[in-house]
Amino acid sequence: MVKILKKEILASGVKRFELDAPEIARKAQPGQFVVLRINEQGERIPLTIADARLDDGVLVIVFQEVGKSTMLLGTLEPGDLIMDLIGPLGKPTEIERFGTVVCVAGGVGTPEIYPVARALKQAGNRVIGIIGFRSRELVLMEPEMRQVVDELLVCTDDGSYGTKGLVTDMLQKVIDRGERIDRCFAVGPVIMMKMVSLLTKKYGIPTIVSLNPIMLDATGMCGVCRVEVDGETKFACVDGPEFDGHKVNFDLLMARLKTYVREERQAVELFRQARAGCQGSNKGGA
């Protein structure tokens, strides 16, 4: 059992939890993830570690409410317990002094790239951050990102905040400035990572992406997270989750993510009905 110590709403449908998990926090490194299971009926959901603090043993996760499990997770409050937390899993990000690096994130990819950007900065890189969101109310962690990068570019699809455009437009601008970029890191929706990788490939900029396939045990046992990298099948949970973006078959990843679309929709529908039912009966009983 793991206790939720703090809860924050970062943006519409995006929540941040601080968890009391000293053992995992002690070992967690940028790029790694945890798996959690809320209760006995729960599924195992993988979430990237957004931060880990050694001094007070706090592990930070940020999640977007996209399905039943994350919606249920979002209803938990400080003091509540999560049944299972497993980690740190996956290989850590390879952090070196590369020179100038660009960290590109889309949406909830931002809290995931935050510890990576910070570690790259600490390793002596010049770090340019690019974070993009659909619109103003979804912008998150801008001040935190600003603290760990040398330069931060913020954009929204609709122009309601920052520059209007996609992260790839911003990346193109940075490339067009003519400065040498030694490495690019991209975390976010699959289509975004694909577009970033296509762009950087044109310019020969090595690019690392963090993949988010469906996972089950997340320790290499089931193979549901298999992705194709350079024509070879890899297990994202143990061989990744980070891979060379120029070699990933993103289309396969996008297709495989849709395996349980129907079941996910059904679960969300039942969850909403149950919530509505319970609020209704509360009123009736009052």
């Binding site: 009926q41 729960g42 599924e43 195992r44 039943k68 499990s69 089950l216 079941e263 996910e264 679960a267």
Partner: peptide, 17 residues
Amino acid sequence: TRSNLMKAYLFPEYDTP
């Protein structure tokens, strides 16, 4: 594993499909 450990045969009572 889905069926046995996660009891997916009881979906949607259990969350794993």
